[in-house]
Amino acid sequence: MVSDTALGANPDPLASSDDPNRRDFIHIVTGAAAVGAVVSLAWPFIDQMNPAADTLALAQIEFDLTKVQEGQQVVVKWRGKPLFVRYRTPKEIAEAVHDDHADLRDPATDESRHKPGKPQWLILIGTCTHLGCVPTFGGGEYGGWFCPCHGSVYDTSGRIRKGPAPKNLAVPDYSFLSDTKIKVG
């Protein structure tokens, strides 16, 4: 293959630009290697901006539910964001269940938004799904939350009912360690 090219009809690389020869091959390979090197070196410089290991390590918290009174909400910080822990009244739960089949922008039943058998505990990430402001507890016409930034209204299940937000308040990964203690993250 190599001798074939070297002894072929085109020994002088400058004589013709039609046939690829060994010098063209070297140019292409060198160029490709340089591009590959730059691209693979670019990744560390991009990825360094993603969450660092110590940021990821701090991503779990435990919370004692006895601190919350019925009808109240406690806000704790989790991953730098507010976490809503809401102890719902039977009336609030009933309202949420009643609206399960209303015209919802992001349809979800109330049951899918709490742990089985614990409808009174609503655990939500407290950032509006529009642009991340912190909605106000008890505000808006559905008695859930009202976002002061751009007027999104959430119901007592944290579902978006009105305003510019596209999605329901997010439910984080959490589990009950005991009847009165949860672990989030």
Binding site: M49, N50, P51, G80, G132, C133
Partner: peptide, 30 residues
């Protein structure tokens, strides 16, 4: 928070972009 969340509006890659911009799960020290 509001301005970086604007970029989260883009489908599929939105959340990855905001996390990357923040260097965490929220606007914080990084």
């Amino acid at each position: 928070v509001v301005i970086t969340n604007l970029l989260g509006a883009f489908p599929l890659v939105g959340n990855a972009i905001t996390t990357w911009l923040w260097g965490g799960f929220a606007v914080d020290d990084p």
